[in-house]
Design a protein around this nucleic acid. Sequence first.
DNA 1: TCTGGGGTCCTAGGACCC
DNA 2: TCTGGGGTCCTAGGACCC
Length: 353
Amino acid sequence: MPRRVIAHCDIDAFYASVELLRHPELKGKPLVVAHSGPRSVVTTASYEARTFGIDSAMPAARARALCPDAIFIEPDHKAYREKSTEVWDLVRARVPVVQQVGIDEAYLDVTAFEKPLPVLRELVAEVHDRTGMFVSVGVGPSRLVAKTVSGSFKPRAFKALSREQACELFADRPTRLLQGVGPKTAERLAAFGAHTVGDLQRMDEELLIEHFGDNWGTYIKARAWFHDDSPVAAPGPAKSRSNETTFPADVDDHGQLEATLARLTEELCAQLQRKDVAGRNIAIKVRLDDWTTVTRARTIGERTNDPGVVLPVVLDLFRGYAPARPVRLLGVRLAAFEEPPARSRASQMALPV
DNA sequence: TCTGGGGTCCTAGGACCC
DNA sequence: TCTGGGGTCCTAGGACCC
């Protein structure tokens, strides 16, 4: 793998920062962007709110308990999309290889620049001047190093680290720091005594492979040493689209559940029609009051985005499962957007010439 | 204080075909 | 009466990410 210079750019407290631009009088106050429902979670907390222990994905009710004086703002996704476009258009105007990840993050391959850091400095300054957003930047030989650096030094991070420096600097941090190690893997690793990145670095690879499988064992061991050769590449077209909703209170009336499935299906099909894609795989998702999650799927012969075709399948899948407990969440999903596979010889022969 | 919504990728097992 | 090996497609669940 030839030498690479990768940057990870992350807009600081993105949604909260957009709100502060529109409501400058709130500057310095703890700000929480979250929907108002009883089961909503925090989308973004300003850094003032984070000092109270509030963080993304936390139940909004808990955030309110932690900081009763925090100002809660309903998300305005249209405004965030527009601001996001402004920011990443400026980035793409200066850097040709950009992989956007979500609304507020991107990886940049800046290997081709003779002096990447000054280029990135100027970019951060320009983005702030023209959009009001602060971008944290981590730089390293891989996406993993860049991402870990930006995440560890934000807000307003600007730092470059070699792989060796990352191995040393993050050795005492929890394994969870590594992108790819989620709560479950961190828990399993802890059961082997691997609590920190350094512990994982020292762990016997054979033991990891034995317990985590060939792929995953090799992968997390490499991550602990910050080895990562994944390229910065624009993602391909979407492989699936879905629409789901959590009820404010659990629902056990099947009439109401089916009406919700009909609405979700209509909305999803309308979205697919706007994007001019159609799928052959139709799936439903049902989450019960005890948090068990069940999916049922069916692949049909022809691609479709017609609710008249999709809804009967959705309802059939739902009736086949017929949840016996109150339902918390319902979802509908379409996938398999690519051309159907070539027909088998048998079915070809069955067709008239 | 109970835990959103939109995605991706991986695994395991079964059906079916050659 | 017992029993191959490989490949593809599909379903269901789970982990993870933003």
